[in-house]
């Protein structure tokens, strides 16, 4: 198995006729991913590489099982697109769109939380489960196997580009990926590393997780707490980038609010300390991901 997406997922793409979305549709179909339908208002009746296009998700659902939506609509329409997906009983929403207003993100997080829907993104490059030949979004491009081969290591990354590089390090070590998830590069995203570790903990196939962390947000600190409290019991190899930002001059901080609300969390050194204390492997060198994986997976 895998998490989030597998060969049985009923996938729909919102904004499918756009340049990027139609290219991704082609790559995904070539990979073997089943895409059931697409939606672009006003373009119902067309098709994109054989995938039927509808005006609404409601129409697309006639005779089709749809549980996963990939959103490629412009920023101003993302919130409405998520609402449409949720009202049509979609269970997983992946938002590829960049530059979504943060208030819209806060609202869609609040709304999907209430409705029990999982959101990944915004500003994600996608999700891929290589063993299922299932990919959502641009991840892997037209050559997913270059970095993503089937296996038992979960990958979670705040950086889109480094999702592939982390998976490639897993491949170099002689292993493969159960599911790789690009969380989205924004400060506020639908699913946090902790949310995904919960899923990887349940996934029988996943034996270890590689996580890419960056400065800002308290996500890595939350992971530390989560492991310390027994929420994730498999080996976690966490790399935290951007240590140099702590040496930059002050002045980037605007006002007192952040310091009062977050304290020192968000700093790479705080993240590293929290992860190490909880028992995660936190290599100093990115190369060490290889040797640490070999050590923990044997």
């Amino acid at each position: 198995m895998a998490i989030l997406v597998n060969s049985h997922s009923g996938i729909l793409i919102q904004g499918i006729t756009g340049r990027e979305a139609s290219m991704v549709t082609k790559h995904s179909l070539d990979y073997g991913t089943r895409i059931v339908a697409g939606v672009t208002p006003g373009k119902g009746g067309e098709n994109v590489y054989g995938v039927p296009v509808f005006d609404t998700i409601k129409q697309a659902r006639h005779g089709n099982h749809i549980d996963t939506a990939v959103i490629y609509v412009p920023p101003a329409f993302v919130y409405d697109a998520v609402l449409e997906a949720v009202d049509n009983e979609v269970k997983l929403v992946l938002i590829m769109t960049e530059r979504v207003p943060v208030h819209d993100v806060a609202k869609l997080i609040a709304m999907t939380r209430q409705r029990g829907v999982t959101v990944v993104g915004p500003n994600s490059v996608g999700i891929i489960s290589p063993g299922e030949r299932a990919k959502l979004g641009a991840i892997g491009g037209d050559n997913p196997a270059r970095c993503f081969v089937p296996g038992t290591v979960g990958v979670i990354s705040r950086s889109g580009g480094m999702t592939a590089e982390c998976a490639w390090m897993v491949k170099r070590a002689g292993y493969g990926v159960s599911t790789a998830v690009s969380l989205g590069g924004d400060a506020m995203v639908g699913s946090t590393p902790k949310d995904l570790l919960k899923m990887f903990e349940q996934d029988k196939e996943t034996q270890a997780v590689v996580m890419w962390g960056e400065p800002g947000t308290p996500y890595e600190e939350e992971v530390g707490d989560f492991i310390a409290n027994g929420g994730f019991t498999k080996p976690l190899v966490a790399f935290v980038a951007g240590r140099f930002v702590e040496d930059l001059p002050e002045g980037t901080v605007f006002g007192h609010a952040a310091s009062i609300v977050q304290g020192k969390s968000g700093r790479p050194s705080t993240k590293i300390a929290a992860l190490k204390t909880a028992g995660a492997y936190v290599p100093d060198s990115f190369n060490d991901i290889e040797s640490v994986l070999k050590q923990v997976l044997g």
Binding site: V102, V105, A106, I109, A110, A187, M188, T192, T217, P218, Y219, E222, G255, H256, A257, A258, S259, I260, V261, Q262, S265, G266
Partner: peptide
């Protein structure tokens, strides 16, 4: 002050009756 709480991902309000330059 009002900002977004980074882990709650909701707006967060902070108040104090002891304001001024030394609030932190």
């Amino acid at each position: 002050s009002i900002t977004f709480h980074p882990s709650e991902r909701r707006p967060v309000v902070v108040v104090s009756a002891l304001g001024g330059v030394d609030i932190e």
